[in-house]
């Protein structure tokens, strides 16, 4: 816990772009609806109240797309993972890994 807390503090201390365009940020309403089981019963992933919030796949938090941290990696940058590079896209493989790990 302390380790994570220090990590967050460290990454937060640097001025970085917002989570919105980070490779680890997932705010697709369809994905949010799948992740939060039962959300569509009395609400929706497409509603205004949710704004553009999404999941941070690293910190395991649900947060605003306007947040930021030092762990930011631009979504349009090629990931270093060779498997991901081969597929030419980052969001889907990361999300795939994420869904199966949590």
């Amino acid at each position: 816990m302390m380790k994570r807390s220090r990590h967050i503090q460290w990454i937060a201390s640097k001025k970085t772009p917002q989570c919105k365009k980070c490779i680890f940020f997932e705010s697709d309403p369809a994905v949010i609806e799948k992740t939060f089981k039962g959300l569509t019963i009395l609400s929706s992933g497409y509603g205004s109240v949710r704004s553009d919030d999404g999941l941070c796949l690293i910190l395991n938090r649900y947060l605003s797309s306007r947040d930021s941290c030092g762990g930011y990696i631009a979504a349009d940058r090629r990931h270093t993972d060779p498997k991901v590079r081969q597929q030419g896209t980052h969001k889907l493989p990361l999300y795939h890994v994420y869904l199966h790990n949590y």
Partner: peptide, 12 residues
């Protein structure tokens, strides 16, 4: 649920 999801994003 809408309030919960809105506040969940607001408080991280």
């Amino acid at each position: 649920v809408s309030a919960s999801i809105a506040v969940a994003g607001a408080v991280r």
